[in-house]
Design a protein around this nucleic acid. Structure first.
Lengths: 214, 214
DNA sequence: AAGGAAATGATCCGAACGGCCTATACGGTC
DNA sequence: GACCGTATAGGCCGTTCGGATCATTTCCTT
């Protein structure tokens, strides 16, 4: 029999397609998980050689599931699947211990190759995510590096709290700083984001993806 | 030969899986498109009976592509595929003229059934999106009717201008009304949206889809 | 004809906001 | 050691904001 493979994806359509493709490629698909939690438990029971794991799944996402599985069963290789080439997610996946990272828009052959490479201990990245990225990723390994950061971490905290509905005073309380400091941070934010009040600052930050709406 | 089917999805993996599944189910897969633009052109050339169209695609999204295809070739049936059950998108898809709406987490059999139903003029919705939704959607079909409108048209104008960066005075100028009236509208908005200041009001309105970020 | 919602407008007032200036402390970098 | 950015904090001041209350007109529905 071929390499013992397990699938983890919350979309049945994709699981079915993968199971057929991978079986045809000579792999032994020993199980399918519908979410990250199930993936963790099934990995323990089935002990597959390689797991093809989707990034976005209910309950526990693929990255976290990967982290937990690699923590307990470090010889299980995990190839991540994702819809879109996202550097942040790629970095997180590599950090979590993934042996590969594939964009779903790749051929059956490419997936099969990646699984075989993973099984033999190599790392496979989607052709779309060239090797050039790898270096960058290693560098960018530290959680949200300081370069190209528009506003500072503290300013971001302030802005996020404002977006969450806090007033200046409430932000000060939550961060254990004075109202004046909060206003200082805001003034700095206004400059950096080219905003003239908190409303514009928050909107601009949302547009730029700096902060998130609940 | 079976029903002439065309696929439109930007993920090759999904296209390959679908092509195999649908071919097995007796359909005649006559073409595949990688984005909305290609889907529109291929639909014209191939004149398929049914198109399985992903919602999220580059260039032109599935909903817009559906709208354009139905506008010119109203007898081509389109079944939308989506990753997640989203009422807003569902409503948009139905408005655009889609004959079906499937969540990707459904079986090959369900997809095949939906395609057959679409071909015979019926509307198929994912079991996950019960028929109960349909009524709601049809009701909500007219572009922003007055009922169940949270804030009035005027209030919406005010809020949109605030979101665009206007101060109270600037809103007043643009709408040819006094600052006081703007403040009155805002006060009314705060009540309705459960906000205590313009920042929260705008954010809440964005969350609710009442206003849009540039 | 009556009632109600929407849009318009006003006054008063306290609280919040934003601009401006200054200052200290800490951590890096040159 | 000097310098720069960040985080902290204070004061001052004029502007803006939001709450409360009230009035007028128009339009739509009852």
């Amino acid at each position: 029999m071929g390499i013992r493979l397990m699938l983890a994806d919350d979309h049945r359509m994709l699981r079915e397609g993968l199971r057929r493709s991978m079986t045809d490629q000579g792999f032994d698909v020993v199980g399918e998980a519908r979410d990250g939690d199930e993936a963790i438990h099934l990995a323990e029971d089935l002990q597959p050689e390689v797991i093809l794991m989707d990034v976005t799944m209910p309950e526990v996402d693929g990255v976290e599931a990967t982290r937990q599985i690699k923590e307990r069963f470090s010889d299980i290789k995990i190839v991540m699947l994702t819809m879109h080439a996202d550097r942040e997610v790629l970095a997180a996946a590599i950090r979590a211990g993934a042996s590969g990272y594939l964009v779903k828009d790749c051929s059956t052959q490419e997936i099969a190759d990646a699984v075989r490479m993973a099984a033999s201990g190599e790392t496979a990245l989607s052709p779309q995510l060239a090797a050039s990225m790898l270096a960058e990723v290693r560098k960018l390994d530290q959680p949200s590096r300081d370069e190209d950061r528009v506003i500072t971490k503290r300013e971001e905290e302030v802005l996020q709290l404002i977006a969450n509905g806090c007033s200046t005073g409430e932000v000060a309380e939550q961060l254990y700083i004075s109202q004046k400091t909060v206003k200082n941070h805001l003034a700095s934010i206004y400059q950096k984001l080219d905003a003239r009040d908190r409303t514009q600052a928050v909107l601009q930050a949302v547009r730029m993806g700096i902060i998130h709406l609940d």
